[in-house]
C-alpha cells in the first residue's frame, strides 16, 4: 500500500513536471543576463573561457560558498569519523598490507602524471574547459592512488589541514586585497594581459589555483577519513 502510494506520487510528480516542461521555451530560452555577460566578459575579465569568468568573477561569492561547503563536509566527516576506541582496536587487529608489485609500480608511474595533468587543468582553466574543480579532483586522485597502493603509509593529516586552510584563506585574501585596494570584494585585479595567453586574465588563474588546491585537499581529506 505504501509503495503503491509513493509510486502514484512519483508518477504524478513526473506528469506534472512534463506538463510544465512542455510550456517552457526550451532550446530558445530568453538570454538576459547570459547575453550581457557574453558581450562584456572578455573585456572585463580577460578570460577566454567565459564560464570561468562567471564562476570566478561574476559569481565569485558562489564559488566561495561552494568551497566552504566542501570544507564543512570534510570537517563534519572528520568530526563523525574521529578515531574512537572501537575503531582503533579494529585497526590494530587488522594490519594493512601493501598492494602487489604491479599496483605499486603502477601508482608510482601514475602519481607524477596525475599531478602534472591536474595542475595543467587548473592553470588552463581560464583558456580551455576545466579549471580548479576538475583539476582539484585529479590532484586528489593522484594522492588517493598512491594511498590505495600503500595503505600503511597514511597521508599527513597536518599537511592536508594546512593546505586546505591556506588555499581557502588565499582565495578570500585575494578578494580582500581587491576590497582594500578600493574596489569591491573579489573584484578582478592585476593586469588582464592578452586574451588567450597563459599569463592573462589578471587574478583569475590565481583564484583557480587556490580553488584547485582547496578541492584537492578537501577530497583527499574526505577519502582518507572514509578509508580509515
Amino acid at each position: 500500500m505504501h509503495k503503491l502510494a509513493s509510486l502514484l506520487f512519483a508518477i504524478g510528480l513526473a506528469a506534472l513536471l512534463i506538463g510544465l516542461a512542455a510550456q517552457l521555451p526550451l532550446g530558445m530560452t530568453p538570454m538576459v543576463v547570459g547575453q550581457a555577460i557574453l558581450e562584456q566578459a572578455p573585456g572585463e575579465t580577460g578570460s577566454a573561457n567565459i564560464v570561468t569568468s562567471v564562476v570566478l568573477a561574476y559569481r565569485g561569492i558562489d564559488t566561495l560558498g561552494e568551497l566552504a561547503i566542501l570544507f564543512a563536509a570534510a570537517t563534519v566527516a572528520g568530526l563523525v569519523l574521529a578515531p574512537s576506541i572501537h575503531a582503533e582496536s579494529r585497526l590494530r587487529a587488522k594490519p594493512r598490507h601493501d598492494a602487489g608489485l604491479v599496483l605499486r609500480a603502477g601508482s608510482d608511474l601514475l602519481f607524477p602524471l596525475l599531478l602534472s595533468v591536474g595542475f595543467y587543468i587548473v592553470l588552463h582553466g581560464h583558456l580551455t574547459p576545466g579549471g580548479g574543480f576538475q583539476g582539484g579532483v585529479v590532484l586528489a586522485a593522484a594522492f588517493f592512488v598512491s594511498f590505495l597502493a600503500r595503505p600503511a603509509r597514511q597521508p599527513s593529516h597536518v599537511g592536508i589541514v594546512l593546505i586546505e586552510a591556506l588555499a581557502g584563506a588565499s582565495f578570500i585574501g585575494i578578494g580582500l586585497a581587491a576590497l582594500l585596494g578600493g574596489g569591491a570584494f573579489l573584484q578582478p585585479v592585476l593586469d588582464k594581459g592578452t586574451l588567450g595567453q597563459l599569463v592573462s586574465a589578471g587574478s583569475l588563474p590565481l583564484l583557480y589555483l587556490a580553488v584547485g588546491l582547496k578541492v584537492g585537499a578537501e577530497l583527499s581529506g574526505l577519502l582518507a577519513h572514509l578509508a580509515e
Binding site: 561569492i61 566561495l64 566552504a68 570544507f71 597536518v158 589541514v161 594546512l162 586546505e164 586552510a165 591556506l166 581557502g168 584563506a169 578570500i172 578578494g175 580582500l176 576590497l179 574596489g183 569591491a184 570584494f185 573579489l186
Partner: peptide, 23 residues
C-alpha cells in the same frame, strides 16, 4: 557599501583558519 560583504566573508575566513590556529 562594499564593506557589506565583510560580515559574511570574515566568519568563513576564520572557519578556514581555526584548525591551523588550534595546531
Amino acid at each position: 557599501m562594499n564593506a557589506l560583504a565583510l560580515p559574511v566573508v570574515l566568519p568563513l575566513l576564520a572557519a578556514f583558519l581555526v584548525r591551523p590556529a588550534g595546531l
